[in-house]
Amino acid sequence: MSVLVVIPARYASSRYPGKPLVPLRGSGGVARSLIERSWLAARAVSGVDRVVVATDDDRIRAAGEGFGAEVVMTSSDCVNGTERCAEAHAALGGGFDIVVNLQGDAPLTPHWFIEDLVAELRAAPDAGLATPVLRCDGAALNGFLADRKAGRVGGTTAVFGADHGALYFSKEVIPFTSRPYDDAEETPVFHHVGVYAYRPDALAAYPGWTVGPLEQLEGLEQLRFLENGRKVLCVEVEARGRQFWELNNPEDVPRLERMMAEIGLD
């Protein structure tokens, strides 16, 4: 099965304009842009046939081509990464068996998350896409609950059935749990990690579906699949002691640089 990794990237982020071009220094002091580090992360995944950056901005295109990436220009009308992946796959002429969306602000995504996604999607012909979930320990859950108590939106959580088909994703903490957990204790809450592996038919159908009320309320693109009856496979992954974080705000830069230093990422 051929695998395409698409890295959607846009310049006009409302929270952090120009984010894909922000430099991040690795353990050796080398500064590389966020989009280059995301591209390098994609290239470290085994079993991938092609990696492309998908953007609507000439500055990102120039940067990507400058470090050797293949860049696909997409429309500025794409409202999220899934729509941009669908457009990029179509622009390449299709033909891939699995399309992976590695978001351009998540360069520390462990390669085994994506490898596990692809393997599980291959084994589940009834699923339109697969996405990773990570069981929260008490420290992570308590952090999510503290965020919500303070009026902040923390991580996205997921609930799924016995077949690991997603039932719902939310920026609230689900399922409800009434008791406190020790920091190292296993909890029933799963953190959703924003990486997706799609079957081409589900991906191609996605832009034609109307944005439903759940997607609109939660601001979560994957809910459009559930609202249109497509099975979303939740794949439980293991962090293996690895820290990872998305770059959402300027204050996240030093956090990511510390994490890169800890794992010796140049």
Rank of each mutant, 00 (worst) to 15 (best):
W209D: 07
D183F: 03
R199M: 09
L220K: 02
A90R: 12
G95C: 03
K231Q: 11
L102P: 03
V195L: 15
A88E: 03
S13T: 09
P110W: 00
Y196V: 01
V51I: 10
G94I: 15
I263Y: 13
R179A: 15
L92I: 07
T82M: 11
R84I: 00
A166L: 08
S27Y: 09
P207T: 10
S178M: 14
S46T: 10
V72A: 04
A62I: 00
S33P: 00
E36Q: 15
G93K: 10
L24A: 07
R255C: 10
K149P: 02
A90Y: 01
F113P: 02
E251S: 15
I114C: 03
T55W: 00
G128A: 04
D49H: 12
V30M: 14
L247N: 03
P250T: 11
K171A: 07
E65F: 12
L134F: 02
N101W: 07
D147H: 14
F113Y: 09
P250G: 06
V189W: 01
A239E: 12
M73W: 07
G68H: 07
Q216I: 00
N249W: 14
R32T: 09
S14A: 15
D201Y: 09
A204G: 01
A130R: 00
V99N: 00
F176R: 13
L167Y: 10
T109I: 02
G208A: 13
Y16F: 15
E236P: 15
E238H: 14
Y16Q: 13
A239V: 03
